[in-house]
Each structure stands twice: as C-alpha cells, then as structure tokens.
Computed example of a mutant assay.
Amino acid sequence: MTLKSLIKTSGISAVALAVGLSSFAAQAQDVWRYAHEEFEDDVQDVFAYKFKEYVEDNSDHTVQVFRFGELGESDDIMEQTQAGILQFVNQSPGFTGSLIPEAQIFFIPYLLPTDEETVIDFFNNSVAINEMFPEMYSEQGLELLQMYPEGEMVITTDEVVRSPEDMRGKNIRTMTNPLLSETYRAFGASPTPLPWGEVYGGLQTGIIDGQENPIFWIESGGLYEVSPNLLFTGHGWFTTALMANQDFYDGLSSDDQQLVQDATEFAYDYIIDHISGLADDMLEAILERSDDVTVTRLDEDEIQAFRERAPQVEERFLEMTGDRGAELLEQFKADLEAVSN
C-alpha cells in the first residue's frame, strides 16, 4: 500500500502518519530504509546492495532495501523520503525534475556524449554535478549523495523508425517530466506521460507506440516483447541519483556521515565497473530470445536530423529554469568541454 492510499483508506492526515512512522523509525535507528526504482539485479538494485554491504560490514546498522513497486511508484518513495519515513531514495531526474526543475537538464538531447569513458569522466569531475546540484537538492530537504549514469537511452517503437518524420503521430511514453515531453515533441512524436507500472500494458494494447529506456531496463522489463524495434539515436544517457533525507543525514554523528559517504563511494566505484559492457550483454540476451527484434543504429546524417531539433528543447529548459538554469547549463557545457579535450 502506498502512502497516499494508506492516508485515503485510514482517514488520518499525512502529517500525523509521517510523525507516527518517523517516531517508529527513531526507535529503530539502526535500521536504515532505502528505496529505488528498479527490479532485482538492475543497476539501481546492484548499487543499493553494494551500499548495504558496505554499511553492514562496517557498522552495526542494517539497511533495508525496497525495490520498484514495494512501496509504490517513484513519486511515492520520494514523498516518503521527504517525510522522513525512508532514509534513502534512489531516483532519476526524470521524476525529481518536478521538485527540482534544473535536474531536467539531463533531458536536453545531445547534451551528453555517448562515449562511455567520457560520460564517466564527466560525472567524476563535473562542477555542475558535484558542487551546484547538492545545493539545489538541499532546498528540497534532500542530501544529494551521488549522481551516476546507468546507460545510453534507447527508443523502442512498434515499427522501424529512422527519422523525425517516421516519429510523426507516434505516442511515445515519457516519464512525468515536462522537458522530456518537449524532447519528443521536437523529435516529431506525441509525448504520453505514464507511470512505469502502465508501460508494458500500454505498449501491448497500442495505447502507446513506443518508449525510451537504457537497454538493460528494456531487457529486464521485457519491453522488447511488446515494442520490438530498437532505435539508437545517441541522444542521451539515463542518469540517476542517491539521496538521503536531509534531517536524517544532518542528525547523524560525524562517524555515521562518513560511513554513508564511504558506502556511497564504494557502491559508485562498483557500479561504474558494472555498467561497462552491460548494454552489449543485455542486447545480446534480447536478440537470443526474440527473432522479432530489430536494431537500428542511425548514421551521422540521420542523427543530425534529430540533433538539429535539440535547440528548441534547450530554449524550453531555459524558459523553465531562468537564471539559475542558465548558469547550470553554462557550467555543464564547460565541464563537458573539459573532459572532451
């Protein structure tokens, strides 16, 4: 049962529920609750269990991990983290963008490179990510512990697509993220925001004609079964972030804060190795399971037809985020230039 449904059925207020559950959590301080958005053995799950491993090997604390659906959808686990019911949440900017509009910067197409080594170098050294974003997250009661990449975004569709013209009229599922919707409008499609739990059925029934995700998630969720045409446009990487409830983190002893930081670094180092080659392995697994899957990798001229539509998305980002978004975007580009040279 999600927090919202519990409130509805019980008739108690959100504040009362949060206070009661937070009080219960305070009585069990050694148990830290951590929720993420993915399934067993997916990237966020691997990260979570490495974090858990480090904490439990180096302290008396226990980390309880909740996977997708066990505590609701992405908005539910964020709500529970802000209320102090959860201590940690792993969530992508695709959903966090409703709280922190500047986090939608990851959905400006062709901003990030597709080369894995350059992407990782960027996350390791970016001033925008490591210095600017923590302040923005803090304003929402969140301690940003680590942003990290999961994999290149791949579009799946009901038929082979090679151009924005081929996208015209297609209902493409997006996360509930205004800038991602703008990206697909720019690409020629009709963006259709849907929670993750409705995606497979929507593809199966034709309510939506396609969606985007990293290839491991397309494999894990079986999306290729109902959306078998895979399109590599090179337009971006899926990014996620581990956060802690700010009050919880600030209330930790200095030793426990260091423990959290060390556990985060341990999990991050592991996951960077883990994602290397993961996309190729998952694509191979998909192709072994289905003869219906097609793989389309656009050439440079075809990519350019999509890339030339990116400026309108960047312009919309600046309209949504104002001066702070402009400053962030400028720093993003400077950071990317630094790792690309």
Rank of each mutant, 00 (worst) to 15 (best):
L179G: 03
L223K: 06
I272A: 00
R297P: 03
E53T: 14
S126N: 00
E212I: 09
L252C: 06
P178D: 08
P195S: 08
A279E: 08
L99E: 13
E70W: 04
T233R: 12
F24V: 14
A244N: 08
S276M: 08
Y200G: 07
G94S: 15
S5A: 12
E159F: 02
Q246I: 09
I272F: 00
E315C: 09
Q312N: 05
V313F: 07
V313C: 05
Q261G: 06
Q204G: 10
D209C: 07
F216V: 02
K50C: 13
S227L: 11
T62Q: 09
L231I: 15
E117H: 00
G188N: 04
A16S: 12
A26K: 15
E70M: 04
P149A: 05
G72L: 08
T174M: 00
L242P: 03
I108Q: 03
N130Q: 02
S340G: 07
G197A: 10
D42A: 10
E302I: 10
S190C: 03
F133Q: 01
I286Y: 04
A83R: 04
L179W: 03
G221H: 12
F107C: 10
F122W: 13
R297N: 11
E79P: 00
V293E: 02
D269H: 01
P113T: 15
W196P: 04
T294F: 01
Q27F: 13
K8H: 14
G236N: 13
E135S: 13
L329V: 08
Y148P: 00
S163L: 02
V46P: 06
G201Y: 05
A285L: 04
A103D: 12
R173L: 05
N90W: 05
L283V: 06
